[in-house]
Design a protein around this nucleic acid. Structure first.
Lengths: 219, 219
DNA sequence: CCGTCCTTTGAACGAACGTTCAGATCGGCT
DNA sequence: AGCCGATCTGAACGTTCGTTCAAAGGACGG
């Protein structure tokens, strides 16, 4: 061969080049698997699971479609991996925030609201995916993900119920208020746009304040 | 995607037989078009737009796939029709509730919360569809639907801002609180299950109470 | 420099997709 | 009865889907 053309593999950009990092990639992941996850987050968050083809993912990752099946057993498993890891990130962030918070129920509610909102702002695409594609999961993966989602919901339940028991919060319906608050905090991933009128900091603070009002915090 | 094994003889009986009614069907609709819409609501609410094939819709409606193209120019247009009508229903219910409410800001917030929650409970599948499949719309349909969504959001904005101006509500962030409340009220479509521990009436009342707390209603 | 193992590839598979179309069927008018 | 327009159908169109596979490429120890 006379031409200076590099072989196909080298002609390609390195896998995952140009993709933003994602919280769903773990340190142990092989580079190509990480690129596929990051690419799937990007594309699926926009077009959904069924609206995204394996070829779309591979193209966004800068690899070939077939390689997906070397790192994951199916497109379905790739989705399940992402959603599962996403909830691990959310729960870990929330539990860590609670560990750092003190005993005051208002501080504790502020902490979990901040963690929840911040994850949904910082990992907006991952969160959107996790909130809209549960229906695309196979039954056994769905069970796992729903269970983890319940864990997160129960953290809010516990914080609010605890505040009510200590008479710092006055809400009549602790469980409904907990769901009310988590729903609103989850929704930020659906409407937030970077560069909009509100900064992430403002959104976090406002949600903390409104959540405290919703539980009838006795200031 | 979705299996259907109805015998041909039963299919010919009457289109749409066995489907629950939907708010998205208008009086002027031809029966087969109505059956297609009702079927699409049922199947798409579960599997999403891209996860539902034209054959799935036709099977659920008890007709043949080709007939869809006699009543709608494409699967895309069928979706756009449903989402557009769904928002018309929501906005009409909310505006009518406001008309019936008096001058008291608390009553007016109760009214819009009740209307919004009730639509999302009574038309759960239609609402789920409307909240998750905006991304499947073509740009021009999306513009229309987003505009109507903004109309609904502005109704809440206006009610809450009005309450603040009259010093009946004390919230510091009227606009953020409005979004907080609508987000939580929209989310009921995602978690409500008929036959669960809460009746529709209870859910409506609790959401009214929590919303009033969130805006710092001065009782 | 060869052999080995892991990674990656292009090409191909059958199935399912949205859509089209010529013709069957039907109700209503003359 | 005979016709007509609207409604509906089965069969097919070309495309794209998720997935498989034999083989090539690359890194590396011997």
């Amino acid at each position: 061969m006379v031409s200076a053309e590099k072989p196909a593999a080298a002609r390609r950009a390195s896998p995952g080049a140009g993709l933003p990092p994602t919280t769903l990639v773990l340190p142990g992941d092989e580079p190509t698997a990480a690129a596929l996850i990051a690419a799937a987050v990007e594309v699926m968050a926009v077009h959904g699971y069924h609206g995204t083809s394996v070829r779309d993912i591979a193209a966004a990752a800068g690899t070939s479609p077939a390689i997906l099946y070397h790192h994951f057993t199916s497109k379905q498993v790739l989705l399940a991996t992402m959603l599962d890891r996403g909830l691990d990130v959310l729960i870990a962030a929330t539990e860590q925030a609670l560990d750092l918070a003190g005993e005051d129920p208002a501080d504790r509610l502020r902490a979990v609201v901040e963690a929840h909102v911040r994850v949904h702002l910082d990992s907006q695409r991952e969160s959107l995916l996790g909130n809209s594609e549960l229906r695309a999961l196979d039954p056994s993966s769905l069970r796992v993900v729903v269970a983890k989602r319940d864990v997160q919901q129960r953290i809010f339940d516990r914080v609010i119920r605890d505040g009510v028991r200590r008479e710092v919060f006055g809400t009549t319906y602790p469980e409904d208020t907990a769901r009310f608050v988590t729903s609103a905090c989850t929704a930020v991933a659906a409407w937030y746009r970077a560069g909009g009128p509100l900064s992430a900091e403002e959104i976090v603070r406002h949600h903390q304040e409104i959540a405290l009002d919703a539980v009838r915090w006795r200031r």
